[in-house]
Nucleic acid binder design. Structure first.
Length: 887
RNA sequence: GGGCGGAUAGCUCAGUUGGGAGAGCACAGCCCUUACAAGGCUGGGGUCACAGGUUCAAGCCCUGUUCCGCCUACCA
């Protein structure tokens, strides 16, 4: 006997351990079964599980468990990401709090420290995934910095370098002055800011007056090496070639002409700072201007900034403005909004900074990756994201892959101290071709995303040609949020195509972002973060998983509310109670028959039995279909609807008389059917709610012949169970029952009062009603039901009109005639509205001629039905009125 | 500046080839009917943002408008 309430805690742990012990999650690289593989988006090794992870991994687990039960050789490949900048920041923060820093420690000791940190905290998120129920093959778990993956990284670097797709050069890159490293373009987050536009006058060198330029960054004037105007701009054509003098520092720079300059903006003259602005950089190249770097890596002013040397860049701006103001060179200040780039890891304002970096020449890789999506080798779901993908890929710029941090894959490049040789190698080289052993490895490490781009094949053993790789690559689907579409998904496609010749996955399923109940993005600083583990503590993991699945409709962000989790916990409680109900009805005498007995008609099933079986078959079909299209919310609501509103509300109620009957045969049929459909429903729900379903399943008196629900065959559409006839008949019964209930409810008749009911009907409908009288009487709580075509309205009756039947409930002495007339009038006008709509449609010649025949036919049928119904209601109202008058 | 998405019941949202709208929660009434009060039954509630258009027929397709998100961008 099950406990009165479902208590998730111990149960969850028990079954997770059981699954692991039985190795159900282990993939087989030599299996004959069709493969199904998902690689996990590797969470940051020092991170902890947030609600976005919970969603992402629940969806993956649903797919994996579903496919595993459906007979696939499944591999859910788990692992973690070393997350270079993020992890280094965390450890540096810790060092800072202890009064030291990484420079004091030195490179080797610092890296040692990070590894220690990883050992301490690196399992946190993995353990949290296990709490969530993730059925990963943990025996294959990988880490982006482990040996195998590092080999893959060096192999890819080398091959790209040899093909000329990796190069080194001095360019203007995005520099985070706090993280002290270069960033790629997408690692910069742009944010609109209210700013100022300042106009500064530069005096002419050889004549009176000056030229005014507009800028949002006045401090960079210290690095100006020209002033540019548009060659077409007649205001300035006579000035081209002349010189101006920069205020205060008195450097002389030329006035040049460049098409880039927009003469309508500002004053039409722009200061050119080639070392501190991307456009100016290009202009500098075009005009062969000097590049003056006025800043150092930590965002303070360099030697080149003259009197401002040593100042922080923002302090410098203030001082420059003050000085320009004082000397009269600041001519105007106006408001000006513009987007400002911030570091995606620490939110510091990013600085365009001139430095020597490694880049991937990305266009050739991107072209292939665009093709793969265009020709359908990779399908992005929902397809709307393909546009973003193409847009980004088509305008992609070379990828800066070197980072000036220590935690990561060190760039496999060595420089000879004796000659100019550059050695790129898989293994650490002993000596240079010139014979020198004085080799120095490049100081930088690679962008973390460089290694994660290889994840789908590096985790499977590449560059080794492993069984895993042969079996599971390309993987089946990648499930992730849109926020890393460019960072990760696009790059995996590029690298997968390049190094495997095949796309890394067939599908990319992109799910929404989870926001708080007000629609705000969750963030630690706002304090509106929902901790999924707190949720699982409070409501159980299954309730959280079910909620996430139910929320996961395509194409819209999720506003997460705890109340909804609470609501679905009620669903679990409902499931639990069906199980209790079953266990209460199982006894030693009653034989529980198998599905094959049912199929072989070895026991006679009631209409209810046949109906719930048929519905099971239909729901199985629909759930499979929904999951096949990643419509998780549909799958969840189909199951919710079936279990609660069909199985519990109708079926269980209908078989109660059979279960308590002394007729062994009918009890056996009902109980066998109940257990069969419930066992199947548990299987259908298992991918979404693995724990409660396993717990109950293990205690069922009859079930499929396997040791765990997680390897039971997933239910599918069963033609033998499909039974349209029974569904049609059930509709009639449900109509009759709800008809009586409506009368009871609306006229406030106590449920304890047993009613006598007359139903006027004919033919097949009457047959169905008489055949199932016990069901109807039980569900409608009636003492007696009379059916027939000749039934006339008894005195003082309430009436309900349903298709093909009129239901009368005589309520002598109780009925309020006025109330009943009101009720019928309401029903009449409701019906009339429908009716006039239909009749208007049918009198429309165009509709009759142009609409498909089936639609017109349907419309006619409804018309007739509503016409009958209206007539019946009218009649009944008249009779009521007669009654009223005769009284 | 460009692109994408959203606006449907009081709230949160479904609505898959166009055939006059659904769920959960909330609300109201009745009920402890021996699985479940975390429950049962019944009921009220919607100009599908606005304005046009296509069509026999529009929540759905087209155009425009308003409001709200997001992505992207080198106008200093």
């Amino acid at each position: 006997m099950l406990d009165k309430r479902y208590d998730p805690k111990e149960i969850e742990k028990k079954w997770y351990d059981f699954w692991i012990e039985k190795e159900y999650f282990k993939a087989d690289s030599k299996s004959d079964k069709p493969p199904y593989c998902i690689v996990i988006p590797p969470p940051n090794v020092t991170g902890s599980l947030h609600i976005g992870h919970a969603l992402d991994n629940t969806l993956q687990d649903i797919m994996i468990r579903w496919k595993r039960m459906s007979g696939f050789n499944t591999l859910w490949m788990p692992g973690t990401d070393h997350a270079g900048i993020a992890t280094q920041n965390v450890v540096e923060k810790d060092l800072n709090s202890k009064g030291t820093d990484r420079h004091a420690l030195g490179r080797e000791a610092f890296i040692e420290k990070v590894w220690e940190w990883k050992k301490l905290y690196g399992r946190t998120i993995i353990n949290q995934l296990k709490v969530l129920g993730a059925s990963c093959d943990w025996s294959r778990e990988r880490f982006t910095l482990d040996e195998g993956l590092s080999r893959a990284v060096r192999e890819v670097f080398l091959r790209l370098y040899e093909e000329g797709l990796i190069y080194r050069g001095e360019y203007l890159i995005n520099w985070c002055t706090r993280c002290h490293t270069a960033l790629s373009d997408i690692e910069v987050e742009h944010e609109d800011r209210q700013g100022k536009l300042w106009q500064i006058r530069y005096d002419f060198v050889d004549e009176e007056g000056g030229l005014t330029v507009a800028t949002t960054r006045p401090e960079t004037y210290l690095g100006d090496t020209a002033v540019a105007v548009n060659p077409e701009d007649t205001r300035y054509t006579n000035l081209i070639g002349k010189k101006v003098r920069l205020p205060i520092i008195e450097r002389e720079v030329p006035i040049i002409a460049d098409e880039f300059v927009d003469s309508t903006f500002g004053t039409g003259a722009v200061k050119v700072t080639p070392a501190h602005d991307p456009n100016d950089f290009e202009m500098g190249k075009r005009h062969d201007l000097p590049f003056i770097n006025i800043m150092t890596g930590d965002g303070t002013m360099s030697e080149e900034a003259g009197p401002y040397k040593g100042l922080d860049r923002f302090e410098c701006r203030k001082r420059v403005l003050e000085d320009l103001e004082k000397t009269g060179y600041l001519e105007m200040t106006q408001d000006h909004d513009h987007a400002l780039g911030h570091c995606y890891r620490c939110k510091t304002v990013v600085e365009p900074y001139l430095s020597k970096q490694w880049f991937v020449k990305i266009k050739p890789l991107a072209e292939e990756a665009i093709k793969a999506v265009k020709d359908g080798r990779v399908k992005i779901i929902p397809a709307g994201w393909e546009n973003s993908y193409f847009d980004w890929m088509e305008n992609i710029r070379d990828w800066c892959i070197s980072r000036q941090i220590w935690w990561g894959h060190r760039i496999p490049v060595w420089y000879c101290e004796s000659c100019d040789e550059i050695i790129v190698s898989r293994e650490t080289p002993e000596k240079c071709t010139c014979g020198s052993t004085e080799l120095k490895q490049d100081e930088d490490v690679l962008d973390t995303w460089f290694s994660s781009a290889l994840w789908p094949f590096s985790t499977l053993g590449w560059p080794e040609e492993t069984d895993d790789l042969r079996t599971f690559y390309p993987t089946s689907v990648l499930i992730t949020g849109f926020d890393i579409l460019f960072f990760w998904v696009a790059r995996m496609i590029m690298m997968g195509l390049k190094f495997r010749g095949e796309q890394p996955f067939h599908h990319v399923y992109i799910h929404a972002l989870i926001r708080d109940a007000e629609g705000q993005k969750m963030s630690k600083s706002k304090g509106n973060v929902v901790d999924p583990l707190e949720m699982t503590e409070a409501f159980g993991t299954d309730a959280v998983r079910f909620t996430l699945a139910a929320y996961a409709a395509q194409g819209r962000d999720i506003k997460f509310s705890e109340e909804r989790v609470e609501g679905y916990r009620h669903f679990l409680n409902k499931i639990w109670n069906v199980a209790r109900f079953i266990s209460m009805n199982v006894d030693n005498e009653t034989e529980v028959r198998s599905i094959s007995d049912i199929h072989d008609s070895k026991l006679s099933l009631s209409l209810a039995d046949r109906w719930i079986m048929s519905r099971l078959s239909g729901v199985s079909r629909d759930v499979n279909h929904a999951l096949d299209e990643y419509r998780f919310n549909d799958a969840a609501s189909l199951l919710y609807q079936y279990v609660w509103h069909e199985l519990c509300d109708w079926y269980v109620e209908m078989i109660k008389p059979d279960l308590s009957s002394t007729n062994a045969e009918s009890k056996s049929a009902a109980l066998s059917t109940l257990i069969y459909v419930f066992e199947s429903a548990l299987a259908l729900m298992h991918p979404i709610m693995p724990f409660i379903t396993e717990e109950i399943w293990q205690q069922l008196p009859a079930r499929a012949d396997v040791d765990s629900l997680c390897i039971r065959a997933y239910p599918v559409y069963d033609e033998k169970l499909h039974n349209r006839e029974s569904e049609k008949k059930m509709d009639i019964i449900i109509n009759a029952v709800t008809g009586v209930r409506s009368i009871r409810g609306e006229l406030n008749i106590s449920p304890s009062r047993e009613l006598k009911v007359f139903i006027k009907t004919t033919g097949e409908v009457e047959e169905v009603l008489t055949d199932n009288m016990t069901f109807i009487m039980k569900l409608a709580r009636t003492a007696e039901i009379e059916t027939g075509s000749e039934i006339s309205v008894p005195k003082n009756s309430a009436t309900a009109i349903k298709s093909s039947m009129e239901i009368f409930v005589p309520l002598k002495g109780i009925i309020d005639v006025d109330a009943e007339i009101t009720r019928l009038n309401k029903e009449f006008s409701k019906t009339e509205k429908e009716f006039t709509f239909l009749s208007r449609k049918l009198t429309n010649v165009d509709f009759i001629e142009k609409a498909p025949e089936a639609v017109v036919k349907e419309c006619r049928r409804n018309y007739d039905e509503y016409l009958d119904k209206l007539q019946s209601i009218r009649d009944n109202i008249d009779k009521m009125k007669e009654l009223e008058e005769s009284d």
